[in-house]
Write a protein that binds this DNA or RNA. Structure first.
Length: 273
DNA sequence: GCTCAGGCAGGCT
DNA sequence: AGCCTGCCTGAG
């Protein structure tokens, strides 16, 4: 079925190519195809929102949640208007959504992201899914699920060599083992506050402040998280050395995404694409 | 050869 | 607590 999702503040390119997710593919006609869990979506931009191609009503609801339909982005952007730079960044990138992704996939993806660049991160994740995920659909040349913790925990470091993930392999295995054994219960993090969730995630080897913040923001939608990467550190050092503006409130994570895009666009020589 | 990529662990002070 | 340093891999 096709569902016409009428909404503001949803730009597929800004959202799906923002670096918060790594598995969306852009088709020749401009539409995007993605998979999350066992859910598959084809989505195409329209003037007033997007058209979703899904199997049934239940799938539609899954994807609306994934796309963070419940957050009022207009209101958040309005709140940001008190800070000139943030306001400009937000308005220029008003189509960005903070996705609600699957926790385990998000955890592994951002462990892989450390000291790495986006094309390579996407390549490693793609090889992980093709080698160890399940081929859940023959559409679009074959769609693979993200392997679950049990599957990855069953592997040895040498099995993961084809990923070419380097020193991150032992982190991937530690995370999968902790989740598989129950030492880490990812579902329990939904009910935790930001500080609790961060401390909990950091008990996984290979998860530091940055990775924990990305997981809390892009999987659990804890918008207080402000992932501080090399780009944002430069921005904060130059414009917010006295502290982040009050108007960010509990939406620091959304502000971070706007600022990240805004400044990344303005330093093309640093881009790796 | 070199540096850098949306960092982190481990060791040091 | 805060500062180093090394790290797989591949592109420029």
């Amino acid at each position: 079925m096709e569902f016409h999702y009428k909404t503001s503040c949803l730009d597929l390119r800004q959202t799906l190519e923002s670096g918060q997710c790594f598995r969306w593919r852009r088709l020749d006609d401009g539409a995007y195809v993605g998979i999350s869990g066992s859910h598959i979506l084809k989505i195409r931009q329209t003037e007033d929102g997007a058209v979703l191609t899904v199997r049934d009503e239940e799938e539609k609801e899954y994807w609306l949640r994934y796309l963070d339909n419940d957050t009022d982005y207009e209101a958040v952007i309005g709140q940001f208007s008190e800070d000139r730079i943030l306001s400009e960044a937000a308005n220029e990138n008003r189509g960005i959504r903070i996705l609600r992704q699957e926790p385990f996939e998000t955890l592994i993806s951002f462990i892989i992201s450390q000291n790495n660049n986006i094309p390579r991160i996407a390549g490693i994740i793609s090889r992980l899914c093709e080698n160890f995920g399940e081929r859940v659909s023959e559409e679009y040349g074959g769609m693979y699920s993200f392997p679950d913790a049990k599957r990855i925990a069953s592997l040895a470091a040498e099995d993961l060599a084809p990923l070419r993930a380097g020193f991150r392999v032992r982190y991937i295995l530690d995370a999968a083992n902790k989740v598989n054994s129950g030492a880490i219960d990812l579902d329990s993090i939904y009910a935790m506050n930001y500080d609790e969730g961060k401390a909990y995630l950091k008990t996984i080897t290979g998860v530091g402040d940055k990775v924990a913040d990305c997981v809390l923001l892009f999987a659990y939608h804890k918008t207080e998280a402000f992932p501080s990467d090399v780009w944002i550190k430069r921005v904060v050092a130059e414009y917010y050395s006295d502290g982040l503006p009050e108007c960010m409130g509990d939406y620091k994570g959304i502000a971070q995404q706007y600022l990240f895009e805004y400044f990344r666009k303005r330093t093309p020589e640093k881009q790796t694409v």
